[in-house]
C-alpha cells in the first residue's frame, strides 16, 4: 500500500506534518468505527480495517525513519531484507565512544551535565544525518537510494542510543 497516495500527498521525504495531521483527522472522522456503530456487521468490520490502515499509514509517515523506509520500499528497496555490514570505521568508532560515555554516566560527578552533553551530541548527529538523508532521497537515483539505506541504518543506531539515554535518565530520577 502506498501511504502517500492514501493521504493524497506527494511521495517525498520532505513532508508537511501539519498537513498530514489534518488529512489524517479528516479520514479518521469519516471512517472511525464510531461513525458506523449502527451499520451492518460487515460495514463495521470494514470500518475497523480501514481505520487500522489509516492509523498505520499515519504512524509510518509521521516518523522520519519509517517514512524514509516506506519511500525506499515504494522504490523497490526493502531495508529489512538487506543484509549489509558497515564499512565505515569512523562511524563505528564514534558509536563505541558514545556507548562508553553512556556506561559512565552513573559514576560521573555530575550525571545531569553528562546526559545533557550526550543529548546534544546525539541531536547534532541526528540532524546532520537526517539532512543527508533528505538530500539522498530527493535525487531519486539507485545509487543515492542505497546511500539513503545506509543513512537510515546509521540513524537507527542514534535513535537507539537516544532511547537508552532516556532510560538511564529515568532510572537516575526514580
Amino acid at each position: 500500500m502506498n501511504y502517500f497516495q492514501l493521504f493524497n500527498l506527494p511521495a517525498k521525504f520532505d513532508l508537511d506534518l501539519t498537513e498530514l495531521g489534518s488529512r489524517y483527522l479528516k479520514l479518521q472522522k469519516q471512517f472511525h468505527p464510531d461513525q458506523h456503530s449502527s451499520g451492518s456487521e460487515r460495514d463495521k468490520l470494514l470500518a475497523v480495517q480501514q481505520t487500522a490502515n489509516i492509523n498505520d499509514a499515519y504512524h509510518s509517515l509521521k516518523q522520519p525513519l519509517l517514512r524514509a523506509e516506506h519511500l525506499l520500499a515504494l522504490r523497490g528497496l526493502k531495508i529489512s531484507h538487506e543484509q549489509r555490514s558497515f564499512t565505515d570505521p569512523l562511524f563505528l568508532m564514534q558509536q563505541m565512544e558514545l556507548r562508553e560515555q553512556l556506561a559512565e554516566i552513573e559514576q560521573s560527578a555530575d550525571p545531569d551535565a553528562v546526559i545533557d552533553d550526550i543529548e546534544r551530541q546525539l541531536q547534532q548527529q541526528k540532524k546532520q544525518l537526517l539532512q543527508q538523508l533528505a538530500t539522498a532521497l530527493d535525487s531519486e537515483t539507485a545509487e543515492q537510494d542505497h546511500l539513503a539505506a545506509d543513512l537510515i541504518r546509521k540513524l537507527k543506531f542514534f535513535f537507539k542510543l537516544q532511547q537508552e539515554l532516556e532510560l538511564i535518565e529515568q532510572q537516575l530520577q526514580d
Binding site: 492514501l6 493524497n8 500527498l9 506527494p10 508537511d16 488529512r23 479528516k26 469519516q30 480501514q50
Partner: peptide
C-alpha cells in the same frame, strides 16, 4: 465506495497545491 470517499474527503487538497 471506500476509495471514492477517501478521495472526496481529501478534495480541495490537490497534490499540486502542496
Amino acid at each position: 465506495r471506500m476509495d471514492k470517499s477517501i478521495r472526496s474527503a481529501l478534495t480541495g487538497h490537490n497534490v499540486d497545491e502542496v
